[in-house]
Design a protein around this nucleic acid. Structure first.
Lengths: 354, 354
DNA sequence: TCAAGCAAGATAAACGTTTACATATTGGAT
DNA sequence: ATCCAATATGTAAACGTTTATCTTGCTTGA
């Protein structure tokens, strides 16, 4: 019962109750050993603090010493396993280094991203991990200006042509080009030549690289005839995946479908089911990303696996190295790219044996 | 280049550059209209602030006025769609009310939960939303003690028998009993009498209520003969779902399986697939929770749908009502329970027509 | 002419910590 | 007796804001 509002007990209250000075209380409560304190007094202080349910105000404390103990993790969506998985290993290293990870989602919205970054600096975050939107470079300008440590994950950001900045950001991610390439190659190996591609035309690096890689992986195969039908959208979501797949299949009927993002695949696969098309008999499927549903379903899908934990822990370690301010070999390199891996399921039909 | 460490420009720097006092700068920058300021000076201040890339320190600011603008969202896991979905609508109402939502995950770990709650109060969070672990009641004691507004979602927490506290927490969640009941009833309607149950024996309310409901839903049916085999675990995870299902099926061979949690179902379904058991021909399945994979797979699974968005937005609105400190009809009630809904797929075989 | 009122701005106290510095009390050693 | 070192504690300044209070120079009405 009773009011909230300035109700927290302060160090002063503790001092009064323990009949001593605030300095002493501070020394006792922060375990600072620079000063000798009699056991008797120490106990009195601890008892008083306990009795009042005293909790140190991190805000007053970090105003004084220049350390917030906060790291912000800004990710584009919770429904994107790539980022939530990376988050988990990130949290582990951040916590292990005695920082508190705070997660916010930008919803793939540049404006929201801008506000969240601004918030992070207003909160005086010690560092920031960013899974960027398409405006990632612009929105991080303030971090570069104020020299706040940050690491970009998953999607690369880079200076606009007109910008004169060249202060490249730390980046940890997967080899998106290779991801596409592996998929294209797999279709090629299995003799597919009429292929549908569902891709995201977000202006982030990963999207474009995936397409490039895919085309390169399948190019040879198509030289002797074949077709590539593409359907794409600005929006990355399950629903949009459904719609794109429908559009594409109403136009043409390929033997194989490549989904550049598993969220698209999720919607697309639903459309296939509703149409009574079975995988891989009627149509083959590969997707980038390895969501649970794709592994535990029948058919089990071919997926391109990206090492989210590696990405997370590496990004975390780089940020920590920056914060510790030591010379770390980790900091010598700016771009960390992890190779992908084709995980075979049974969603690709072998056409070469017909 | 250059050092981090006290590098942020302060209001004092701005004042110096604009050749005025800190008071004026503060008034201008916070848009406080209590004071008249000449246009000329106002512009000088704004220019100076811009030039220095000044950002107000939320930590200094909220030390002074007693308002943090922070709401912590503590959820047990990112892989649990129930909570991530609730999070999204929570964020919306929190942001709409001009607070900044910070998300942390407790990993279903009571100790971690305790620390995170402590952190939240150390950060002087204005309010807390908690998807509790089994120690939820104990860990929130400090919030009650210090009178910090909080709302519990998804799983109910309640005083230990030995505790003398009776200050019931605000709770928003689904009717877990009904969730179980609907599932039991559905099996009963379809004539199943040899049934396997995979349940979580976490000591949170939802777990126990689900089982109770399920038994009640199926009870009648079993009166004329039948069997119920239960397999349960302390740990809630996909892997454990796999293991429990294996244990159960090695012991007995029911016609239907009830998964109390979709994470268990995910692992269980994989085991079924590996054993070559097909759903619903060989075995019927219902699960609580409606993950994407269960909807987009074939077969489409019977699921018990819980209204995560309703839970999220309601919990958010209750917390905001507390923070606004007004009399809100919302605050009159302590427990908000949303009914569940059986979403039919084709994972339950009708045995009555044989 | 002058007090009163007002516009436009400055000064300084306060928020809850941390910590440099000052003080007071001991017990030896000289 | 005197001085010093060691121990144990207190005082107060500082961190970056906000805001109550004070100052100054003008206007203006009687």
């Amino acid at each position: 019962m009773g009011e909230r509002r300035g109700k927290y007990p302060t160090i002063k209250d503790v001092a009064r109750l323990a009949n001593t000075s605030t300095a002493t209380v501070s020394y006792v409560l922060s375990g600072n050993t620079d000063r000798l304190i009699s056991l008797e007094l120490r106990d009195r202080v601890l008892d008083a603090a306990e009795e009042l349910h005293y909790t140190k105000s991190a805000v007053a404390s970090s105003l004084r010493v220049n350390r917030r103990g906060l790291v912000f993790l800004l990710i584009p969506q919770f429904s994107n396993i790539y980022f939530t998985r990376a988050c988990e290993s990130l949290e582990d290293v951040i916590i292990a280094n005695d920082f508190l990870p705070m997660i916010c989602d930008t919803r793939e919205d540049p404006e929201r991203e801008r506000k969240l970054i601004e918030n992070a600096v207003a909160q005086r975050a010690d560092g920031i991990i960013l899974g960027p939107t398409s405006s990632g470079w612009k929105n991080t300008a303030i971090l570069r200006k104020l020299n706040i440590p940050y690491v970009v994950v998953g999607r690369e950001i880079s200076p606009d042509k007109d910008s004169q900045e060249d202060n490249e950001a730390y980046f940890v991610g997967d080899d998106s080009y290779q991801a596409g390439f592996l998929a294209g190659q797999c279709f090629a190996r299995n003799g597919h030549r009429r292929i549908g591609v569902i891709e995201w035309n977000g202006t982030v690096s990963s999207a474009m690289d995936r397409s490039m890689g895919f085309y390169e992986g399948i190019r040879r195969q198509l030289r002797n005839g074949g077709s590539l039908e593409v359907e794409s959208s600005d929006v990355l979501s399950t629903e949009e995946g459904y719609r794109l797949t429908r559009e594409l299949l109403q136009r043409t009927r390929p033997t194989a479908l490549f989904f550049g993002y598993h969220s698209y695949a999720q919607g697309g696969v639903r459309y296939l089911a509703e149409m009574g098309l079975s995988v891989p008999e009627d149509i083959s499927v590969i997707m980038v990303g390895t969501p649970a549903w794709a592994q535990f379903s029948s058919p089990k899908y071919h997926t391109i696996y990206q090492s989210e934990d590696w990405v997370g822990s590496t990004a975390g370690r780089i940020l920590m190295a920056q914060l510790q301010g030591e010379e770390s070999p980790l900091l010598a390199k700016k771009r960390y790219i992890c190779p992908c891996q084709l995980i075979e399921g049974n969603s690709v039909k072998d056409l070469t044996r017909l």
